[in-house]
Amino acid sequence: MATRLDSTDPHADAARRPEQSLWAAVVLHAVRDAFDKGDAFRIELDRVEALRFLLTPRGAWAKSREHACYSAGVDPERLHEWALKVMDGKVDYGQPKEVQASRDLWAAINSPPRKAQPTQTRPPEGEPEEPSEPVSIPLPSVVETVGIFDVREDGTLYCPNDRALVGPSLPRENSQQGRVLRALTMKRGGTINALRKAHPKWEQLAVEVCRRLDLELTYRHDGHEVAAVVDAETKVFVRRRLLSPAA
């Protein structure tokens, strides 16, 4: 029978050290993702999750921070307070440019989503205009926010018009790839004409952006998902890559 490890077991501390070191590495990795330049494989989502892990005051992310910190032998409250001070500029850590990028990203994550503006239908030419109630176009159903993107129920990304396309892993907003990404994340998806206007080889650029950001392209025609562009009425979206279910 295996011996239970508890505080009375002289070998308990030694047995816990590898696990504690592992959790300490997890906490340190989150700090580096949030405030350091990171490696070439880091994507925007890594920084977003690291910021949520360090800064969220309550809820699932705060509980995750507490679990990781207690497992690593770190005080979660002190880590939380320290991260807030770094964001406020009261503590120097990391590279100033990266910390500022994290401040901008955190502000974007917490900015309220834009409300849909009411629109009014107009009668056909020649017919008298009748008073009518404003018709509001509903925004897509948003379930969470990742970086500057709102994520819809089906995983597609929507970038509100008042949020800039900025981030260390995102293409520059006015670059060819940036214009294509913006067209793909419009409220109703990317129209073929808008994408062609963004760049003649928009699909090639879109595939490159998706590969880098761990996204995937989806196509819809007449309300149904299709394998590729059918005609000019096909809408194109980017979606967070769906993880295959564990075997």
Rank of each mutant, 00 (worst) to 15 (best):
Q100E: 15
R152D: 07
A164F: 06
C210P: 01
Y93E: 14
D88M: 04
T191H: 07
H80W: 12
Q95T: 15
S169L: 00
T156N: 06
G126H: 03
R211C: 02
E125Q: 13
R196W: 04
P168S: 02
D104A: 14
E81S: 13
L181Y: 08
E129R: 07
L105I: 15
K187S: 09
G189Y: 02
P200V: 04
Q120W: 15
S132H: 14
R196K: 13
V86K: 06
H199N: 03
P131Q: 08
D92C: 05
I109V: 13
R103C: 05
P140N: 08
G167D: 02
E133Q: 10
V91N: 13
I192S: 00
R188G: 12
V142A: 08
Q100D: 15
N161V: 04
W202R: 00
D150N: 10
A206S: 04
K201V: 08
M87Q: 11
C159A: 06
L217M: 07
S136V: 12
V143R: 07
R179C: 10
S102K: 10
A116I: 14
I109P: 12
R114C: 06
L215Y: 00
T185A: 02
V86T: 06
Q117T: 13
M186D: 05
R211Q: 12
N193C: 03
G178T: 05
P118G: 06
V146C: 07
A101C: 14
G94Y: 04
P140F: 15
T185Y: 02
L205K: 01
I148N: 03
C159S: 09
T218I: 00
V207N: 01
A101Y: 15
V86P: 05
P171M: 05
H199I: 00
E98Q: 13
L184A: 02
I148S: 10
Q120T: 08
P123E: 10
G89K: 01
S102R: 06
P131C: 04
K97A: 15
I192T: 06
K115Y: 13
K90H: 14
D214R: 03
W106I: 04
A101N: 14
S136R: 14
V86Y: 06
D214K: 01
R212P: 01
E98S: 14
A107L: 09
S111G: 10
P140K: 08
G126S: 09
L217K: 01
P138I: 04
V151G: 00
G89Y: 07
L217E: 01
D104F: 09
E98N: 15
Q204S: 09
T156S: 02
P112E: 11
V207A: 02
T191A: 11
W82Q: 03
Y158E: 02
G94F: 15
V91A: 09
V143M: 06
N174M: 11
A83D: 13
K201D: 14
V207W: 03
L105W: 09
L139R: 07
Q176K: 14
